[in-house]
């Protein structure tokens, strides 16, 4: 499906498939081809060969092109893809397992897990009975649109399904990389401090929804929810906020309603 990189046909993931489908930690087409062809020397004789070339291109143009292709693939199939971003330990995976338990009877769900190392999160997701693919980024601090596009091939996503992409726990780098998702959802646990939105403004600016998680702990903390939400809206006036506890289930109803409504929106065929 990778029309941009041209690696869709015939490239092999067999080194992973030999043992399991749960890891995608290769980098099968390193763009450095090692044999750059010398340009034709077409410049006029006597002139210095050095010249200026105007590029005027976004540094992330290539990632954005992959993201556009992912978005097209997802929208043609009515799949709602959400890019879940947060610091490590905000409770992303617990929120996912609790969400899946409540929705898996009525919706088709799949998960892409991004971590630097281990397949632990994918195993936690698979224990709920839905397919999960682990992408290990190695030294990388974020998922990119190219790797996510290839993950689609492995997951055999159903039409009108829900795809959660759990990004690497990091409130900085994933903000810059569009994966082709419908929305970035930033998860902030109340144990982290209310000023995270202004400490990491890029992420809260890029997200459409903020989830305040672990609200069951509020009685034991000095966390000021109203102040936190005000900071988030200062960075991103359009951000919507949900408060919940994945552990006790408080507030989960609103999150499930939001998910179903967004999934329904994916069914609309715009002209």
């Amino acid at each position: 499906m990778c029309g941009i990189c041209g690696c869709g046909e015939g490239h092999t993931h067999s080194h992973e498939e030999d043992h399991s489908h749960d890891s995608l930690d290769h980098d099968h087409h390193n763009p450095i081809d090692g044999h750059q062809h010398a340009a034709q020397h077409t410049h006029a004789q006597g002139l210095s060969p050095a010249r200026m070339v105007q590029i005027e291109q976004d540094i992330l143009a290539k990632n954005n092109a992959y993201a556009d292709e992912n978005r097209r693939y997802l929208s043609q199939r009515g799949i709602l893809a959400l890019n879940l971003v947060s610091s490590p330990g905000s409770g992303k995976t617990s929120l996912l397992t609790e969400t899946i338990k409540r929705l898996k009877e009525e919706l088709s769900i799949a998960v892409i897990e991004g971590d630097q190392q281990t397949t632990r999160d994918a195993e936690r997701i698979r224990a709920t009975g839905v397919p999960a693919l682990q992408i290990n980024t190695g030294k990388g601090c974020h998922l990119d649109a190219h790797r996510v596009g290839h993950a689609f091939e492995h997951l055999a996503l159903s039409d009108h399904s829900l795809l959660f992409i759990e990004n690497v726990g990091n409130l900085v780098c994933p903000s810059a990389f569009d994966l082709g998702e419908a929305h970035k959802v930033v998860i902030l646990s109340v144990t982290e401090g209310e000023d995270k939105p202004i400490k990491y403004p890029d992420m809260f600016h890029a997200a459409d929804l903020m989830i305040l998680n672990k609200t069951d702990l509020l009685p034991y903390l000095d966390f000021n929810s109203a102040e936190c939400i005000a900071y988030a809206k200062r960075v991103n006036p359009k951000i919507k906020v949900l408060s919940l506890s994945a552990k006790t289930g408080e507030g989960m109803d609103n999150w499930l309603k939001w998910l179903k409504a967004e999934l329904e929106l994916q069914r609309i065929d715009y002209a």
């Binding site: 291109q57 990632n63 990388g140 990119d144």
Partner: peptide
Amino acid sequence: MHEMSLCENILQTLQQQANAQQYSKVKT
């Protein structure tokens, strides 16, 4: 450290443009 990824993206663009713009070396 996504600056490393940004540099990799820059390099991809430089390589992509090399054929179209007929150059074999980037100086600046």
